[in-house]
Design a protein around this nucleic acid. Sequence first.
DNA 1: GCCAACGTTGGC
DNA 2: GCCAACGTTGGC
Length: 136
Amino acid sequence: MNYWLIKSEPFKYSFDQLLKDKKTFWEGVRNYQARNNLRAMKKGDLLLFYHSNEGKEVVGIAKVAGEAYQDPTTDDTNWVVVDVAPVKKLKNPVTLAMVKADKRLAQMALVTSMRLSVQPVKREEFDLILELAGEQ
DNA sequence: GCCAACGTTGGC
DNA sequence: GCCAACGTTGGC
């Protein structure tokens, strides 16, 4: 089981929208590193859902509902999407400021590779985020 | 809206 | 294959 963090601008696709849709395919990734992370995802992997720009916070947990396949929105075979389903909304969103303020999370890609839109998360980091969210 | 960081493109 | 130019992302 692996853990990941995916970013979305809330006005483009928010976690609430995902809760409403029950399932979506994660499209629009046009960065090789992010793409490679998508390809590495396995069904059942857990995802932190981060809102960039507005909010700048982790708002929910989602999971990989289906592994990478050709992005249906383009003919370019370089790009893939994965199926994503909501798990739960966090009681208290974890803001970027909180993550940055916590020394234990200083190594998170969210801090070190700010612009990467699909990034791996360590199990300890995932647990810490849940702790900060008041989920455990 | 600005700008820093960073990834990609294209000329040489 | 280098690197300057350019475009995009995302925090502030």
